[in-house]
Every structure is written in C-alpha cells, then in structure tokens.
Design a protein around this nucleic acid. Sequence first.
DNA 1: GTCTATAACGAGATAGAC
DNA 2: GTCTATCTCGTTATAGAC
Lengths: 183, 183
Amino acid sequence: MVRTRTRDEILVVAAELFTHHGFKGTSLQDIAAGVGCSKATLLYHFESKEAILTELVAPAAQELADLVAYLTTLEAAAAQEAAIEGFVDLVLRYRREAALIYDGTPQFLDQPMFAGLRPLTDTLCAAFAGRSTDRAACVAAEVLLGGIAGVAIDKAIEAGDDELRRALVDVAKRALITPHPKD
Amino acid sequence: MVRTRTRDEILVVAAELFTHHGFKGTSLQDIAAGVGCSKATLLYHFESKEAILTELVAPAAQELADLVAYLTTLEAAAAQEAAIEGFVDLVLRYRREAALIYDGTPQFLDQPMFAGLRPLTDTLCAAFAGRSTDRAACVAAEVLLGGIAGVAIDKAIEAGDDELRRALVDVAKRALITPHPKD
DNA sequence: GTCTATAACGAGATAGAC
DNA sequence: GTCTATCTCGTTATAGAC
C-alpha cells in the first residue's frame, strides 16, 4: 500500500463522486474522467472498485470503533451524553464517509464490505437509548441516530459548522434525555 | 393502462425486489425471474424499468400531496401536530414506497422521476418546524423527518404496529414541540 | 506508472415469430 | 400476450505496449 500522488487523487475524486451519485451510481469511467487518467490506472492502484470504497471508509470506521469502546467505560447517563456528542461530532467530520456507507438499501450494514460495523452501531444505539430496553426508548434512539446522520449527510457545508453541531446535539438531548417523563 | 393479472404480479415482485436490493440493484432479469416470465413481457406491460417504479410510488406520492394540501389550511401549531401524526401514519403505511424513493443518494428527490416531490417535503418540513425559520428548529425538523422515515423503512413489521406508531409520534413531539424554550 | 485496446459480462430495450 | 433472439450500450477488469 504505497502512497503516491495519483493514488491520493483517485481517493479524493472517488469520495466526491460516490458521495453525490452513490457507489453503484459511480463508474470507474466517471472516476477516471475526474482524475484525468484511464480506468486501467485506477485498477493499477486499487485491486477493485470496492477496494477504493473500503479504503475511503476505513478511518471513519476506526473512529467509530474508538468512540464505542470509550462508551463502554461509562455508565448509562454519561454514555448517553457522550454518545450524542461524540456521534454528532463524528458524523459531521465524516459526512462523506457516512454517505458512502449508507447506500440506501436497508441491509447496507450487512454487506460483507462493512462487516463489523453493525455491532458498533448497535452499541451506539443502545447508548443513545440510555441503555434502556424500553421499546419507545429504542425507537427514539434509532430515529435520532438515523435522522442526525441523514441531515449531516445532506448538508453540503464544508468546514466545521458549530451552529449545526449545536442544533443536532440539542434536538437529540431534547428527544432522548427525559428527566421527568410526563406520566 | 389496462389492468391484467401479469401486470399486477410484476408490480408485486418489483416492489419486493426494489425494497430489498434498491432500484439500481434490481435488474429486469431479476424481476422477470421472480414473476416467471421474460424481460420482454415486462417491457410489454411497462414502457421502461423506471415506469414500474413510478407506478409503484404514485399512490404514496398522491397521499403525501393530499396531506400537504391539508396542512396549508391549518395554522402553525395545529399544522405541526397534524404533520407529525399524518407523516408517521403515511410512512408506516407506505414503508416500501418510501424505501424506493429514498435510494441513498442525497439528491434522490431531485431526480426527474420524482419531480414535484421536493416542494411537498419542503412544506412538510416547515410544518414539522412549526413554520419557524429559526435554524435550530429547521435542523430539528429535518432530523425527525429523516429519522422517522429511516426507522419506518428499516422495520420489517407487516401490519399496523400501534406501539411503533406511538413511539414515533412521541419522540417527534418531544423533540419538536417546545412550549417553554429554555432561554 | 500510465496508456490503448479489448475481453467478458450484464444491463435495458427492441424485433419479430407464435 | 408471451416468447426467443438480438442489438446496443456501459460496466468491471485484464493484456500488453510504452
């Protein structure tokens, strides 16, 4: 896995195109045109189209794993808050990668390509729910988890947007942290 | 547009396959195999692959349009509640169709196929936000709108699930309806 | 390391027999 | 109304020259 200029540029262009048109919707032709090289050059640097995607997603997956590992060291309430803030932060920093992983099919996490990601999101979702097994709490956690990811993916804002960050954290806390349930 | 037995079966099989593997991930071959006919038969009944999808989505799109039209007759607070309950109901009844429309790309609503859907979801989102133009309120509305749709799409529950329905409505109201904002 | 050329395949769609 | 056969195109991937 040697790093070269072309190789890096392929990753940049592929990220851009995958983000906008999806993995299936982007061909090697498209990537090659964006880079200004041939398809053969792409496949000289990467074993396959999937290999490009896997490498793009790797750092985000690693950070997600780190976050989840950290959450397991906390008790429920602290883990809930840390999960919310950590996930919002993560998904804002890795918008593109999040969009790549979520390709629109329900079983997107069950593809062999992303094996190992599902247990991470499950643990994260449990943390969002404050480790409660109550159905409503779990549903709420799923709604917020998916909703936050979706909004972050949609936003084409480039640099860190603190206002968006705060809005996402706030809505999640409002929806999930219920100090005095009504009845 | 004459109704026949084969035609209806094509729609059923296509809905099933599109839901599980996405539109791009399903070929005419796959549909033909499921129906037990040839690709040519598919294209005798439908002008194109897209035409199948368009017809599958049509009733859901119509109901969404009806809901949005109804919302415009209400003032902000009533529209907000009606939007939440109406959307949850709609998306639970049309899980499959929702999954078809949302193909995973950010611009899925901007495809020519679904032209006219975007203004509807924009109005719906505004209703979710209580017609507020505050950034945080808009972000929260987007999170809940997308999150609810995502959860409903993921759930493979068949018949009406009142518990899920209540959970979705509740989390949305908790997150969006803020009678006394903190400061 | 990059290219052109092409293989090998699958896609959507069409033609025409039955 | 359904079929087989075929067309055309785009896809991923490979071969081999430079």
